[in-house]
Each structure stands twice: as C-alpha cells, then as structure tokens.
Design a protein around this nucleic acid. Sequence first.
RNA 1: GUGUCCAUAGUUCAGUUUGGUUAGAACGCCAGGUUGUGGCCCUGGAGGUCGUGGGUUCAAGUCCCACUGGACACCCCA
Length: 422
Amino acid sequence: MKFKSIKGTRDILPEESRRWQFVEQSIRSVMHLFNYGEIRTPAFEETAMFSRSIGELTDIVAKEMYSFTDRGGTNLTLKPEMTASVMRAYIQNNLGEQQPLVKLYYIAPMFRQERPQAGRLRQFHQFGAEAVGGQHAAIDAEIIALACEVYSNLKIRNFVLKLNSVGCERCRPQYKQLLTRYLEKVRDRLSEDSRRRLEENPLRILDSKDEADRMLTRDAPLMKDHLCAECAAHFAELQEHLKLLGIPFGVDGRIVRGLDYYTKTAFEIISMDLGSQDALAGGGRYDLLVKELGGKDTPAVGFAAGMERLLMVMEKQKIVPPGGGHPLVFLAAADEEGRKWVIRTAMGLCRRGFACELDLLGRSLKAQMREADRQQASFVIAVGADELKRNQASIKNMRSGEQRSVDLRNLAAELAKLGDGP
RNA sequence: GUGUCCAUAGUUCAGUUUGGUUAGAACGCCAGGUUGUGGCCCUGGAGGUCGUGGGUUCAAGUCCCACUGGACACCCCA
C-alpha cells in the first residue's frame, strides 16, 4: 500500500465514531449544565506561545512538539495542549473585561510526538474546561466536580480522584530546597532516571515508579506539609468544598503535574481499568499563566481529559451508546420502471424525515433484499412496473416478515402508521 | 529517545520449530439453488507482490540482516 496514516495517528470509522458522537454529546451537555461555553482555537500557534507557557524544560516543549517553519518563516507548532491557547484567546479577546469569571470548555485534537502505546497517540483528543478570573477554592471545586460529573454522567466506574497542592511562588522554592537536601543524602541509591530528575525537577522523584526510589522517598518531605499559610488555607478550603459536594477524594502528596504553570491545586483522575497510562484527566490551578502571557494578573483553574482513554474505559466497562438512530426504509426495485420510481421516492421520503436506502449498483431484487437485511432496514418497499400501473407497492416488515400491498399515494402516511415516522 | 514481542486473503488466524509441488481454514464478500423477496441451509466463485529491501541456499512464507509499521513497557503524560 502506498499511503498509510502516519505513526501514532488513526482513522475513526463510522462504527467507532458513533461512540465518539455519543460521548461528545454527553460531555457537551454536562458542560452546558455547568454553564461553560465552548471555545475553539486554531490547530496551530506561534511556537513561542507554547514554550513560554508550558515551560522550556518540560518534556512537551523539550522533545514532543510538532513544530515547523511556514513559508513566511514563522515558527509554528501544532497545539500539544489546550490551556495555553485558551489563555492566549482570553487575553487577545479581552474576555476578562466582559465579566469577572469566564468559564470555557473545549473538545479538540492535540499533537505530541511521543512513542505510541496503550492510551497514547501522536494525535489524540482532549476535552477540558478552564475557569478564569477567580482564586477562590470554590472554583477549583467546581472544576473538579465538573470533571467527575462527566464520568458519572457516562456511568463510568472504578475511578479515583487524587488531590494535592503544589504551593505557590513563595512556598515552593523553599520546599524544593528542603526536598533536594533530603534527596542528596540518598543520591547514590536513586535510580538513574531519578538522579537525572534531581537536577531537572526533584518533585518528580516522588512520583517515580521505581521500587527502590519509592522506598528511599517514603519519609521524604511533601509539599502539602510545607505550604505557606495562604496555600494551606486554600487547600483546606478546597477539601471542605469537595466534601460539601459529596465528591470522594484522596490526598496524594506525590502528585506532580507535568507543566510548569501549576500553582496550589493539582489533581488527577485515575482509572483502574486502563493500562500503564492510567490518568483519565489531570488539572489544577495556574494563577501565574495569564500574566506570563502578557495579560493582567489573573488567577485561573482548569482540567484536561483524554477522549481516547475515556473511550477505552467505556469499552472495558461495556458501556455502549443507546440504540441506533432512525429506522431505515429500503426501497427495492424489481425492474427499470421500479428503479426510476425508487430514486424519485427515496428523495421524497428523506425530505419527510425517513432514513432511506436504495440499490445504486443495479443489483437483482434478491441482492437488494440481502442488502436491506445487512443494513438492518425495518421495512422494504418493493415495486415493479405492474404494481406502479395499479398505484401499488409491496411493503414488507423485515422483523416479522409480514408483507402487504399499499396505495402509493398514502406511502408516507402508511410508514408513519407503522411507527417509523419522524 | 530506549527495551521486549509481533507483521500470511477484507477480518481473525493455521502453516515458520525441522527450508522442498499450484500457501490453507473460518467468518465476511459475490453469484446460483428461488426467471419479484432477506436471515437458516446447500453449491460455486472472486480475493494473497506471505510488511519492504537485501542476503544465505539447487530451493525461502519458513533461516540471517536492515528498514518500515504495529502492540506493550520505560521516560513522560491525556
């Protein structure tokens, strides 16, 4: 075969896209109930916009972005995540000037050049929400509740909410020193990866999957125990709000988010039914980002969640979209006269709201019946020249096998009577 | 970027260990059995550069190498 979809990208064919549409619809309905409005941003942006907001040293920026130079010499990047773009749009369109708290959601494709594996693709899809303009913990709680509600609404089971606070620009540097001092003492016994992390991002060592690392860091100091008064109060308040909302959570002092811009709240929603990449959603507060991108000092909080991973969990949990759409009417022709009538009538029935199918391959009546069966048509209307002369057609119920003659002039009414009307 | 495993009809897979006629099955597809009627059944048919390229050999789907792609894991993340 000459052309193939490129590594880490794939086609979503009709059978599967039905499931996507169902999930997307469900997400949108929850988002709208929480009064979040949809934002759609361009597929690509200036590279510098992403690298500045996500962080030059993060894996995303350092080695995963799809970047290219366009014919005008501008350096562009396919969006690897959505928050940066949403904040850029928030600033550019002066959304903060119209109302103090702006609530936005999205469902969009993202691009990262990583090695594909279970639950990870190079083009993947995220849905998420951002609430921009308030620092109150009630907003963090709403964002978390919103994420959880999407899963509950789809009847997803076996997921847990893990919560942490990563502090702010005042308390985190102090804590980082404390942690580094602790880790330096056991440096030689850390895994190779973690020794590297010690230079780049010591917080990550707490999140290591290496058994030895886990043992070594069992008594390491955690950020949540070294928050400044403001961050500690915010974290406590968030937990109270979640209890108020009846949302179960576990505090996990080892959660570290991969992007530089997070402050205070960090959370993850983990599924037990996924492989190694088990995060369904992740998010948190980012009070410094809007200013970093050139806007006013504006606090914000949000989350991003993986569509593919959600679909994977649904498959595992055997959650399927409710039964298919319209009942289908198949128009079958026995001869040339019939074919002409069928073509004309199919258009007419479509306009009246009946889903129709007909033979476009010049096949025998038997083959048309087989096709109707394959398409799971509810009814077949069959005509031939002799019937047309009498203004009659045969209508067959494909479930019961029962067949009778009807007058052509009452066709739509007859179909509607059979319970298949629009 | 690293590692392990994998690649044969549309699909799922035999065949590779031990190299040897025209590479098989099931399902699916097409047609006939029923000259105007689906499903079940019966009969027949179409469909494969054995991922690509090189090598070993009298002979390669089968052995060796490289590449490409896939699955899973690491890193990291949705």
